[in-house]
Design a protein around this nucleic acid. Sequence first.
DNA 1: GCCGGCATTGAGAACGTTCTCACTCGCGGT
DNA 2: ACCGCGAGTGAGAACGTTCTCAATGCCGGC
Lengths: 361, 361
Amino acid sequence: MTTNRRKPAGRPATLPDVAREAGVSRSTASRALAGYGSVSPDARERVRAAAEKLGYRANQLARSMITGRTHTLGAIVADIQNPFFAGVTRGITDAARAAGYQVLLANTDEDVAAERAAVKMLRDKHVDGLIVAPAATTETAHLAAAHAAGCPVVLLDRQAPGLPADSVTVDNHGAAQDAVRRLLAAGHRRIALVSLLGTAPVDGAGAASSDPVSTGLERIEGYRTALREAGLTDTDTYLRTGTFHREDPADLTAELLSLPEPPTAVFATDSMIALGVLSAARDHGLRVPEHLSVVTFDDTDWARAVRPRISVVAQPVQELGARAVHSLITRIEGTAHAPEHIVLDTEFIERESIAPPRSGT
Amino acid sequence: MTTNRRKPAGRPATLPDVAREAGVSRSTASRALAGYGSVSPDARERVRAAAEKLGYRANQLARSMITGRTHTLGAIVADIQNPFFAGVTRGITDAARAAGYQVLLANTDEDVAAERAAVKMLRDKHVDGLIVAPAATTETAHLAAAHAAGCPVVLLDRQAPGLPADSVTVDNHGAAQDAVRRLLAAGHRRIALVSLLGTAPVDGAGAASSDPVSTGLERIEGYRTALREAGLTDTDTYLRTGTFHREDPADLTAELLSLPEPPTAVFATDSMIALGVLSAARDHGLRVPEHLSVVTFDDTDWARAVRPRISVVAQPVQELGARAVHSLITRIEGTAHAPEHIVLDTEFIERESIAPPRSGT
DNA sequence: GCCGGCATTGAGAACGTTCTCACTCGCGGT
DNA sequence: ACCGCGAGTGAGAACGTTCTCAATGCCGGC
């Protein structure tokens, strides 16, 4: 009974199949389905019916060959497991899908070489544009090249000075300054900052990382500004920065807490560092906020569920991703215009992790 | 001085450009670069040099048109912001990249319609295969269709009975049973389970969700088995299941804690539910583990940083993703074979969130 | 000297679309 | 009766590869 072998399809129906079924040419079928040019109502309906009957779905690869558009965006982030980037990625995929785009995802682990490789692969696949949280501020030749070659780039969360690309960030300096001010207002004077910056230097050269990312640096500057405002000139005594995959924030904190005059408050530059801080505090038998006040960037789900609930600088993570997508798509579909730098607002969420310092300073 | 306008390239170099530069035909250039057929050492070298000089990169779209392979995998998960899926996605992207594949990502929010739409888009883009954490157990026609049409599917974290697809899961029943046994061993008798299952039913029909996912069900069965083992026949008194986006795990827990005879221990079926449980416990002025013992699936970063540290059933999240990729790629590249069902081991990590119940049962 | 075989090569088709162009109608205006 | 025009249509090129196939040249064996 299955002798009729038209529809069952060994291979999926193509445009010629639809055209044949509808009794028109490929051109007319294409016009009818894509809705351009002019097609008689009759032909249009016959094509529609034929397409439906055969279960026709246009091959996007072939279409992309012609149009030069893949309707695919590349997203290059440091680590999807970091709640910040998870949220950002969520924002990206949702906004992209709403706009009719798909997202090709790549992790870099803050490694510039991995980022370069990712850009290469994504461009080979002809993504229409790139959303990148760059691993380094200065080594951005691959991004500049992509941009120049007509594959627009929008920077996410981080700036890259020389690059004529759009960017979507928050006011890290201001937000950090504000957070530290709150600690100062509670009476703290010995306020630490714990952060992780950049990747391990390639040459065994040095102490600091070779090329830290802008975000961390701005937060540190905000911290320093707040301290100076309060008349504290020695802004780096309690400043601890480590390197990704090398230092553990918990160790950095442990060292701080073992100081003769340990800090009474800690400012963590992201949620994963805050976890290390909390862990170290516990190991030292310190209670938050009685013995140690804690503030961190990023309002993760656990920050409002743990005891005490943690006061945080909340970033609009999903919106960050969504705005990046919109910037990118306007640039893809629109005309050339000067790079725009979108700066979104953060929100300080006061909870229970800040208290006045125990005894006097 | 820039009159020579060969290399500067208005458009990227194509194979004909390379062939011309090397003084050979397209065919030879293609053979030299792809490394098949036979090419003289001389020609091979000239082509290589020409390609390098022009900065030639093969257009993967065009290649895919011919070969029928895109070297792209589709990953369809419920919610990338859930740490479990974030970890799984990390495993997927890493394993895929190592194998020379890219990953197209889609979120479903546990919504079958969204899943269907995602499958459609991804197949239009001609992904070589699909990794899916299906939102429903029975509504899998779109997955079966993809599989039958030569777009292999591997199920991740969840089973779908009728589907002849590979799967990678953990032993949810056993792991849940083991976790509840630990609570029983600590002396608990009133042990609750809090879970979220399926999506809201489309018709306003009913109490329970229409088509819950296998994972949650298996965990519930494991819980029941453990209780029955211990001679507790009434296994559903403290069983609370809600619906995604409708019920809040914290509310479910709050209701349990307000019971005349409240549970002395709670088993959460994933980390986001555990957060709700913890939150509700805090709101009721209950301390963990003194007043309430807590165990959960998923070893997230915060579980070992908060006080008390939470005992968990750790799933090998990254490996789950990596194994799914490997299964999928062997099926893509290999010959047809019977569906294989990989079951990975979980590990119970004992920490500080379990204590004997306060007074008597 | 002839023939079989192998290495090397290039012409051209194919993949499934979109797009440009030229052609044929039918109709209304002059 | 003729022209112009617009709607509708189809032929064919184009996108940038891979792949099939036939042709060429060279070599050694007989």
